[in-house]
């Protein structure tokens, strides 16, 4: 897949954080799309192509999932657990981007299978820097699996 088609699915409920992260991304990357869902249920719907998300032209499968843990309706961990049980799309890399660094969360998510665990830094400059690094690493360097269902 051409890296130009790479897109990110951000699962995040806090509108301020959505604002910051998108802004930080735009500063380093104006091409690759970032789509946002605001709760765990919507994330599962998106990834399974249910309901309004069945149009894969408008809502393509992402190459990277940026997952917050504290979500309404279904938590990030539940989404992760669900994803890892799905055929094919279970290959999708997941990077946790969350506020807490509780040992419990870190270990549980790694156990379920994540590619990275990031804690939102308290200073915006640090967040910018982190997103820039994320962009370079995941959207430019990384090689992705195929997730077409045929």
């Amino acid at each position: 897949m051409n890296f130009r088609d790479h897109s990110i699915l951000m699962v995040e409920d806090d509108s301020n954080d959505i604002f910051f992260i998108q802004r930080a991304f735009r500063q380093v990357n104006k091409t690759n799309p970032i789509r946002v869902v605001k709760d765990g249920e919507a994330a599962i719907d998106y990834l399974s192509g249910a309901g309004e998300y069945s149009d894969r032209e408008q809502y393509p499968l992402p190459t990277l999932i940026l997952l917050d843990l504290k979500l309404p309706r279904r938590s990030g961990t539940e989404v992760l657990k669900w994803l890892r049980q799905q055929p094919v799309i279970k290959r999708l890399p997941v990077v946790i981007l969350t506020s807490s660094r509780e040992n419990v969360d870190v270990n549980t998510t790694y156990e379920l299978g994540i590619s990275s665990y990031l804690v939102k830094p308290v200073s915006f400059d640090a967040l910018s820097s982190m997103i820039a690094t994320l962009n370079t690493y995941w959207l430019k360097l990384n090689e992705y699996p195929s997730v077409t269902l045929t």
Binding site: D14, N16, D17, F19, F20, R23, S99, S100, K120, P121, V122, S123, F124, D125, L127
Partner: peptide, 17 residues
């Protein structure tokens, strides 16, 4: 401390903007 962190973090963000 944990609960205060998020608002402070976000204030920091908006201040930067």
């Amino acid at each position: 401390s944990h609960d205060l962190r998020a608002p402070i973090r976000q204030i920091s963000g908006f201040v930067a903007f």
